[in-house]
Amino acid sequence: MKLLSLQEMRLRYTKQPDSFSAYLGKVWDYRYMIVVLATRDLKIKYAQTVLGLVWTIIQPLTGLAIFYFFFHFLVAMPKVPECGYAVFAFSGMTAWYFFSYIVYQGSNSLISGQELSQKVYFPRIILPLSKVVVGAVDLTISLCLLMVLMLVMNVKPGWQILLLPGFVAVNATVGLSVAVWLSALTIRYRDLQHIVPYIVNFGIWLTPVFFPTTIVPDKLNWFLYLNPMTGVVEGYRWCLWGYSEFTWSYAFGLILAFLLLIAGTVFFKRQEHHMMDVI
């Protein structure tokens, strides 16, 4: 058994919370925990299911089939780009589902993970972070499906596809900024658990997932761009199959989300210190 020398590691607990930089250092030290928790989630998710990962494929495809039927077959959506409605809607849905997974699971992660966090120490922000990793697995599968769909529809990606990881990162940041705030607030105010479905279910209609921004009157267009997810969804489309033009209006959402995330982390850390006595 290799033992560390006593000076190597020194922990100190007082009533003072860690400084912000020390906290980030701890999160870095415990980064392996993100993967461990995500692996655990994934294993549990598919334990004793016959179809296993197939469910991750079936779910978005059913969603697509339903929306295709309504917005293309029953009510023809105007101003749909050349790629066809299926590719258009599915690329939006892919981004949105990633966001909604992080918001749903992340905001609930402190409560659902309390069995563990009451007994094992790790920076609690690891919990929502691990949900991002789980969501990313679903996202990857969804993106593969999208590629297949594009191949079938004969839609060719351009060079911009290389920028996709950047937009995925923005997507995760937006989701995480909401999840971090909600999870920290949910500790004291359980009411917020009921707000999450609203954000996810109504939010999709305030984001151009099923409709192009061009059908929205110009006067209201700015309103759409207040929503950081608009930039993300449009960005996905731009880098996947060259939809419309790259605009810096994407950046607005990113900056907003980034500021929210930093403020959220500060708030989260403040709550975390006494979290275990309150939860």
Binding site: L3, L4, L6, Q7, E8, M9, R10, L11, R12, Y13, T14, K15, P17, S117, Q118, K119, V120, Y121, H273, H274, M276, D277
Partner: peptide
Amino acid sequence: GITPPTEGVVEIFGTPSSIL
């Protein structure tokens, strides 16, 4: 490290594993 003390100091030298 699961819950902070209200007053006082705890110092640990080494890598602890807590099995609560």
